[in-house]
Design a protein around this nucleic acid. Structure first.
Lengths: 229, 229
DNA sequence: TATAAAAGTTAGATTAGTCTAACAATAATG
DNA sequence: CATTATTGTTAGACTAATCTAACTTTTATA
């Protein structure tokens, strides 16, 4: 049985290698900073995960997941996302409240519980932030996704998910009317300071690259990520 | 914020002092044995709980709860019993499966979550074992209860709760048809070996004092614990 | 009431997870 | 390519929760 800490490390490694996927490996310092621990701590822990055959790792090298490590990490994420969905759809939490509570619920180790909850929720495909929910084997289809920052000017597109789950970010989106399913158009992109003017509904809002790079969209006409509309 | 361990100690002290209530204090060894730790461990821990002002305690003395300790212990029990009810009524777990999972869920610290869950469940008064659920202040009406072992011969009575939540015990009850709400009659009580013959529905079953002392009942005619029917 | 049994404590060790401070290896850059 | 910056490691210390082994206090009983 994995400890909370071990599960959090695996989850963080999945995020860096599978999801934010520039590379399938991650550095110890990077890991330390996502987990809010000092590099020394992460360095120790990575060696412990290696001994348990959950990660591949060599001294001064990068960290990547073994088959088993990936499976277990994905199951933590499955639990997290199913609980978020439950809190949002069944208990009427708002989308900025669910993450924090799910951080605790995700460590409850009962496969049966998660399968029953999944059934109760009607086998949802996505959590309240639009992220896909892994199946009970820890498998998931990771779609190639586009952010608003990569979207060409004038082309309507539809919001399908958000990457950042922080309360501040999600409340900000609520304020400017940006929700999952909303249609947005990049009205203007200022090269000088990278600010983007976004049309959401009827209203134009100027947003930062920090925002645009955290909102995933598909083409508004064909619904695909890569299209020629 | 309390640790899992601290919460488990408080819960155990509540069980011994408030619920199994012969006395409002409990010994260190007794505590150690319910928590499956060595006396030395419990002795240390009790001193830590005292420093946090959760228990009253003096060297070589007994342990009892402070106001705060009792409140926090009762809230753990509230969470446990609400989750049990959720697992049983919403996710269709059987009554012998709920306890184990609830042991993990009870440590999720979110008052809002519990209040919303309570609302979702329709403010249940009792968990699947017939035990009362404390309110969000940690308060509860502890009824004076009678067990089958105290019931007089020939008098029909109704099962309202069970004390033991172990899988073995609950499956045994299922097998002999003894459920919450069932009517039972003590047909015969053998003084020599304390075995009791119980009529459950149409069938007579011989049971031990271990069983009879773990099943709570009320009078079958008037529904009260103390009656003159 | 003296002694044995039960209950409880203390000292010293262990493991998981964390830290700081000093050091070492690798990568980036003038 | 030498120097600096970044990244990662090691050593030593700390806390929470546990253990064993030896010891002490309280309680029960012969």
């Amino acid at each position: 049985m994995l400890s909370f800490t071990e599960e959090n490390y695996l989850k963080a490694i999945v995020q860096h290698t599978l999801f934010d996927g520039i590379s399938d490996e991650v550095g110890v310092n990077q890991l330390a900073s996502t987990l809010n621990v000092k590099p020394a701590t992460a360095s120790d822990m990575v060696r412990r995960l290696k001994k348990k055959e959950l990660v591949h790792y060599e001294r001064y090298g990068k960290v990547s997941l073994t088959k088993q490590g990936q499976r277990l990490g994905m199951l933590v994420i499955r639990r997290h996302r199913l609980w978020e969905t439950f809190l949002y759809s069944t208990l009427n939490f708002s989308w900025d409240e669910v993450h924090e509570v799910a951080e605790e619920l995700e460590h409850v180790h009962s496969g049966k519980l998660m399968d029953r909850l999944d059934e109760f929720l009607g086998y949802p495909e996505f959590d309240p932030h639009g992220e896909a929910i892994p199946n009970c084997e820890g498998e998931i289809k990771i779609p190639f996704r586009m952010t608003v920052s990569e979207m060409s000017v004038g082309k309507p597109c539809k919001v399908i998910a958000v990457r950042d789950e922080s309360v501040d970010f999600l409340r900000y989106l609520d304020r400017i009317g940006l929700a999952i399913g909303a249609t947005v158009v990049v009205v203007h992109r200022e090269e000088y300071d990278e600010l983007t003017t976004l049309r959401i509904g009827e209203k134009d809002t100027v947003v930062s690259p920090k925002l645009t790079s955290n909102v995933y969209v598909v083409c508004g006409s064909c619904g695909k990520t890569k299209c020629s509309c």
